[in-house]
Amino acid sequence: MGEAAPVAGRIPLTVVGGFLGAGKTTLLNRILAGAAGLRAAVLVNDFGAINVDAAIIGERGGETISLNNGCVCCSIGGDLVDALIRVMSRSPAPEWIVIEASGVSDPWRIAQVGLADPGLELDGVIVMVDGTAAAEDLRNPLLRDTLVRQLMAADVVVLNKRDLAGNSRLREEIGRMVPGALVLEAAHAAVPLEALTGFAAARMLDAERMPSAAPHASHSSQFESVSVAWEGRYSAAHLRTLLARMPAGVLRAKGLVGTDEADASVLQFCGRHGSLRPLEGARAAIPGQVVAIGLAGKLPARALLHALTCARLGEAAVAGARR
């Protein structure tokens, strides 16, 4: 019986959902062209529509296109299990796996595999919406529940074809339907990839080791972040409550913290879904850091700090105060 090769570390997983024509393939083509600067493996339904610069195509097979930039595109065909096992077994392992959910499917059903498999880490669900068609789709009784289900699964909604649509009522309607999600408007699926993924937060967590317990904020043009360092232990139950009721405005959070469950637990939050689980394997970094990202001017740094302070374990909190 064949057994897939073990995966070193967890590979971030993003699921891209949305109806046919919403711009999924355009976004996937950009990722394959290297827009994220990562060795990405992209699993697609519409294999024939993948269109990357011929100059970067390394090898083209019936179900796989390997690119010189390290990215690879695989056809899902009828068997996502098989396709996902194949890319997870690749050597070197992909740094990012992106799955295209078929047009009317619920991306959340697929995305949960990023929470279930120890070789994966859910980075988020992106739902592409055709700005010229969605208002009508929401009025179509055959489609409305399907579209709503997709939107409810989204961490990021990309309202595409802004150049052709031009009505803000749709954006408001979607914002009302999915209050926790980030809604971005775009033309030709041109959205900053750092808005779609948690990589920026992950990089910050690795790079920034703040010596003080004071929250630290950094600003870029569109996003701002806050970083909270504290070496004591947190209550896992409190952190899970926080993950379930994250203050509005936090798009991404990532952390490595000690809890009453484990010396080091990975905290992860993307859009509207969070997880906290004990770290597997060794890690050089010392636990004690949480990083959160939000839109510039909209990150609720104070509320977040308050919630994290409340989640400190009593005993450890005392120890922390003495220091």
Binding site: L80, V81, D82, I85, A111, V113
Partner: peptide, 19 residues
């Protein structure tokens, strides 16, 4: 239940039911 929860097992057994 369903794809996501079943996948880690399917991966561990090399997708044996399908192959």
């Amino acid at each position: 239940q369903e794809f996501a929860a079943m996948f880690p097992v399917m991966r561990a057994i090399g997708n044996a039911f399908k192959t």
